[in-house]
Design a protein around this nucleic acid. Structure first.
Lengths: 370, 370
DNA sequence: ATGAAAGCGCTAACAG
DNA sequence: CTGTTAGCGCTTTCAT
């Protein structure tokens, strides 16, 4: 482990490059310390400022000097210390994304898009999962010292409520996603939940279904995706003169596949009569389809199924899933550009930005009546 | 938009808290600058070191002093500047995870587990997607200045090959995942691809299938998951005296659902005779099941289907998917603890760590013969 | 038990 | 065109 290198100096941990003496120094622990601006300047025989100029493409540098510096950089394998640059500049070059759980397809796909969009702007993304930590976990996240390690936060809460609006008064750029809180002090991106759910329900009605079950309802809740989508559902029923029937409502706090299956089974076992299911998200819909199959009900012949989210999987399930595309890709792109605007100092009142939605017609719910 | 809050004060992005004079200073841009150790020290009437001592739970502090400092901290809403701490300590408190694409369920679930494990150790995770950037993109990632922004990297390459082993000689803690490169200079976590694929194939054979198609093969490739799993498949055939038949092999470089469906259709259209499919990952398997259904073939009655990965979805697909659990959860936990060991200076030869696998029996391939 | 001061690597203001 | 220097906010000897 400790041995003689080519030039007689120490070599520790795994094989390392030769230590050129004039070049890099080393730490007391294993890793060779990275070269600094200083090292480069010394090797190139110029001042540290000149090196900095070369690195930052400062225009007026004598070509020969520039070459010498670049040679030194290459020789030492110098890369700038971004931590130091951050401390100096006040920018970290990273943004944080806080979501409930990356194992949920919706958030994984959102994260993938956010990371891609951020990278196009030269930013990296650190991801935090609030998981099952509940409201307190979400509040803590907003004030964690970690916030200082990124320039801004894109936050999709699942537990906070309108009462927590004051907690959004933070001193860093914050973009809020979702439908837990409105009229807050920050930019807010959300989808048209009520309108989209209403359109989805009307789509089912127009295709000839009248007894439409719901999977994934949050009973007694007034805010959040579940409540808003349920409201859209009720509006559609009302507009078409179809009475609301509580026996068709399958509650489920969590929105995993298992919950969709369980919620669907409850409705079936209850003996309710229905010819369609509106699952409040795609994952629930897959679970519901599973339960329908187990009960010997065919999709879409006996029961049409409508989802919400248009996750990747919806096009490949069997049958493929008719669902609502709530504009996730647009939300990801816009969240990044919005938080960047704030990072760059945009001083404007908080904005509410609404994504467009679209019904994506597939096999689980054909547009035409049976 | 800009309006009166409940207490009659403005709610504007960029609005600032009262400036207490003795307290925090402010920047020239909108945001109020955070309080520093210095501010706290001044307000508490102590030195900066004392404040630092309080924050870091240094044992010997007079209780009254401690109280005064804590009061000042609370008053100013002070939180330590982690960037400065990083520069000083050489640790960022974050690790990076590089995967091909978070929208792929396997990597999303891996990332979720890695983030959870890292958090348990007080670390945050920044995620980079190498996407379709190819080999060069992966090489660049290893030397990017961004590496300095995290203490270590967990890297799952998809394009690099054994020839690139020298590129893994980096001067920061690196843990390699996957099966593209072996015998490298870093710790390496991987799954037992050959053994697991062999076991999966034998499972199908024991259940009475003899004509087993493959979906997702990488033709002519010698390394990587595809090649290793195909090798396991061939070993199993050989062990049971079943001849290898190239007409049963469906190639597909990418492993999305669409590729699985396309690859499966090709095998079907080729007129090949088969009674089982071993898809080289679960996502391919779902696509393949879709194509089978379109072709009027029933799973598992006509064709048994075996996947690989045991992603969450495998338990809820219709039919649910018999697959190989390659130990992803263990890999995530172990990757984090391994990179932490290296960050903390562990000086040991590179280790190769192998996860255990398990065949998870579900509906798409029952254990008993028809 | 607390204070003074150096310095992590970088950028930028100011000189020359 | 290039060099000098003062911090960014923190931790950490070394004094006291």
């Amino acid at each position: 482990m400790v041995g003689e290198g080519p030039s007689g100096s120490y070599n520790v941990v795994g094989s390392e490059h030769a230590d050129r003496g004039v070049g890099r120094h080393r730490s007391d622990r294993g890793w060779a310390m990275a070269a600094t601006l200083h090292d480069v300047a010394r090797l190139a025989g110029v001042s540290i400022k000149t090196v900095s100029n070369v690195i930052n493409d400062y225009p007026h540098i004598r070509p020969t000097t520039k070459e010498r510096v670049e040679a030194a950089i290459a020789e030492l394998g110098y890369t700038p210390n971004l931590t130091a640059r951050s401390l100096r500049s006040g920018r970290t070059g990273s943004i944080a994304l806080a979501v409930p759980d990356l194992a949920l397809a919706y958030f994984a796909e959102l994260a993938a898009s956010v990371i891609a969009a951020a990278e196009a702007s030269g930013l990296v993304v650190t991801i935090e999962q609030t998981g099952s930590g509940g409201r307190q976990r979400e509040l803590d996240l907003l004030t964690s010292p970690r916030r200082k390690m990124s320039d801004g936060l894109i936050f999709s809460p699942l537990e906070m409520s309108q009462d927590d609006v004051a907690h959004l008064n933070v001193d860093y750029p914050l973009v809020l996603l979702g439908e837990r809180i409105f009229e807050g002090p920050t930019d807010h991106l959300t989808m048209r939940n009520v309108e989209a759910a209403r359109a989805a329900t009307e789509y089912l009605i127009r295709s000839g279904r009248r007894r439409i079950a719901i999977v994934g309802a949050h009973e007694g809740e007034l805010i959040g995706s579940a409540a808003l989508r349920l409201q859209g559902y009720r509006e559609a029923l009302e507009a078409h003169g179809i009475p609301f029937d509580g026996r068709l409502i399958g509650p489920s706090i969590e929105w995993h596949r298992a919950n969709g299956a369980r919620s669907m089974r409850e409705i079936i076992e209850r003996g309710a009569d229905f010819d369609a299911v509106f699952a409040l998200n795609d994952t629930l819909a897959f679970g519901a389809m599973r339960a329908l199959q187990e009960a010997g009900l065919r999709v879409p012949d006996d029961v049409a199924v409508m989802g919400f989210d248009d996750i990747d999987e919806a096009q490949y399930s069997i049958p493929s899933l008719t669902t609502v595309d709530p504009g996730r890709a647009w939300i990801a792109r816009t969240a990044v550009s919005t938080v960047i605007e704030r990072i760059e100092g945009l001083d404007a009142p908080p904005r509410l930005l609404l994504a467009d939605f679209e019904i994506v017609q597939r096999e689980s719910a054909p547009a035409v009546a049976r």
